[in-house]
Write a protein that binds this DNA or RNA. Structure first.
Length: 449
RNA sequence: GUGGCUGUAGCUCAGUUGGUUAGAGCGCCAGAUUGUGGUUCUGGAUGUCGGGGGUUCAAAUCCCCUCAGUCACCCCA
């Protein structure tokens, strides 16, 4: 006998078993429905892109994390796997914008790959679910993004979230007034770590990495740490810039105010959106709105949905200016959080079917499939057990996989035109005429699981 | 990519200063019950001790390499 190959997965990549895949697909489906309800339209792009497209010009950092694709032997072109959905979208937009027209709203969901060190909740292959509007700088689109996020978490049955919003316009305005606008990238990257490493270390890092003075750094932090209600924060910031003519900051303040007003009018609950001037987002392409979404019951896991506005998405690929705003749901992180929070979607079931028809008599297979079809036609996912094993074993199978209902039909039921319906969680059994089966099952399924 | 820690049955782990056929609980399978599952009882199976190499009369135990996981840095979803 030849030696077996170990059935391993490579580092940072993993399998998704049914108990994970079932809630995962539900999350994806929910996101899709919400995005579509706002008119975002689906697009997809290839997993692999030419290396020059992926790496652009700022190649040094992304160069390290891009997976190279070797291609077939005779192929020449250097390819890499996409490391996010934004870069391919920029390429797509630059290529097709004339046909698409602007503004253009799209969503995309799919795997991306990064050659980083894997850790808990961090993988080398993971999914992103992006939605963006490009081709307009209107604040209406910024506002819509936040409304989408609000709807998204409502639909996910996770109401206890806080969407923390900020504006790079305000941050940049401050840096301008301090005369350190040219250090924005390293400064904001440090500021972004405020929650994680604390103010002392942030100041230290700003001095070291950005070369600003300690007093400049603490002024940045002073603004970022402005707290209170949204109104308080806006008032404080307005006062700070009252005397000076700072177009960037006043513009940022105005846009946030409008966003909050529209959200309130749309019925977004009080407190759901919170201005947090310390939200900075490490990525340097953001230019206006920036936001992160935290779970109130598990803030430590970090943002599960983030994004913002960027002035020019596709400048690498076209001369046409394409401003945009959007966000991205971190499915895998969210799933980890839902597991931690014992979210009702994570039932542990490993079957998508609700009903299992037990097999008592192989000669009745036609009857069983007929019953199954009736249920399926009524929209109830139904499975027929393939073997005539002992009933106890069939019940165990049903329980282990999480079917909600068992249907038992043997000789005596056939004779009377009935079936036995067993609620597997309540362990109660009733005999019903076959004609009423679908209705009875539907009623049982509507109850608590 | 750099450094630390971990790796023993499906799962959680035990395994004394290297010393005979590597253990426990839970789970799993079968039977008690030839039309009924979470309890009980009885019986049963299960491990290349992550992988490879070395030291030794003898390695799960010591050394080297490698793979995977995990923590910190880095970066981020």
């Amino acid at each position: 006998m030849s030696k077996l190959i170990e059935p391993r997965t490579v580092s940072g990549f993993r399998d998704y078993a049914p108990n994970v895949m079932i809630p995962r697909e539900r999350i994806l489906q929910t996101a899709r429905n919400v995005y579509r309800s706002f008119g975002f339209t689906p697009i997809d792009t290839p997993a692999a892109e030419s290396l020059d497209v992926l790496l652009g010009k700022g190649g040094d950092e992304s160069d390290k994390l891009v997976y190279r694709v070797r291609g077939a032997k005779q192929e020449r072109e250097e390819m890499g796997l996409r490391f996010d959905l934004t870069v391919p979208f920029a390429r797509f937009a630059a290529k097709n914008i004339n046909d698409l027209g602007t503004p253009f709203k799209r969503y995309a969901m799919g795997p991306v790959w990064r050659g980083e060190r894997p850790g808990q909740g961090r993988y080398r292959e993971f999914w992103q679910c992006d939605f963006d509007t490009i081709g307009t700088t209107a604040n209406a689109s910024d506002t819509e993004v936040v409304l989408v996020v609000n709807e998204l978490f409502a639909a996910l049955e996770i109401p206890r979230v806080e969407i923390r919003v900020n504006s790079r316009l305000i941050l940049n305005g401050l840096l301008e007034s301090l005369g350190i606008a040219d250090k924005a990238v390293p400064l904001l990257r440090s500021l972004d770590k405020l929650q994680k490493i604390g103010r002392e270390k942030v100041i230290e890092e700003m001095v070291r990495e950005a070369g600003v003075s300690a007093s400049q750094a603490s002024q940045v932090l002073a603004l970022a740490e402005t707290s209170g209600t949204n109104e308080d924060v806006l008032r404080t910031v307005s006062e700070l810039f009252a005397g000076v003519d700072n177009k960037s900051a006043t513009d940022g303040i105005r846009r946030l105010m409008e966003l909050l007003a529209v959200a309130a009018k749309t019925g977004v609950p009080e407190g759901r959106i919170k201005i947090d001037l310390s939200i900075a987002r490490g990525l340097d392409y953001y230019t206006g709105l920036i936001f992160e979404t935290f779970l109130l019951d598990l803030p430590a896991i970090g943002s599960v949905c983030s994004g913002g506005r960027y002035d020019n998405l596709a400048s690498l690929y076209t001369k046409q200016v394409l401003p945009g705003v959007g966000g991205s749901l971190g499915v895998d992180r969210l799933l980890a959080a839902m597991e931690e929070l014992k979210h009702p979607w994570l039932t542990g079931a490993t079957t998508p079917a609700a009903v299992l028809i037990l097999q008592l008599d192989a000669d009745l297979l036609g009857e069983y499939q007929q019953i199954a079809k009736t249920l399926r036609d009524a929209g109830i996912a139904t499975e027929v057990y393939p073997d005539t094993k002992k009933l106890g074993q069939q019940f165990q199978y049903a329980e282990k996989r999480g079917y909600r209902i068992g249907v038992i039909a043997g000789g005596s039921e056939m004779a009377t035109g009935t079936v036995k319906v067993k609620d597997l969680t309540a362990k109660q059994e009733t005999t019903v005429p076959r004609a009423e089966l679908a209705a009875v099952v539907q009623k049982l399924l509507a109850g608590p699981s």
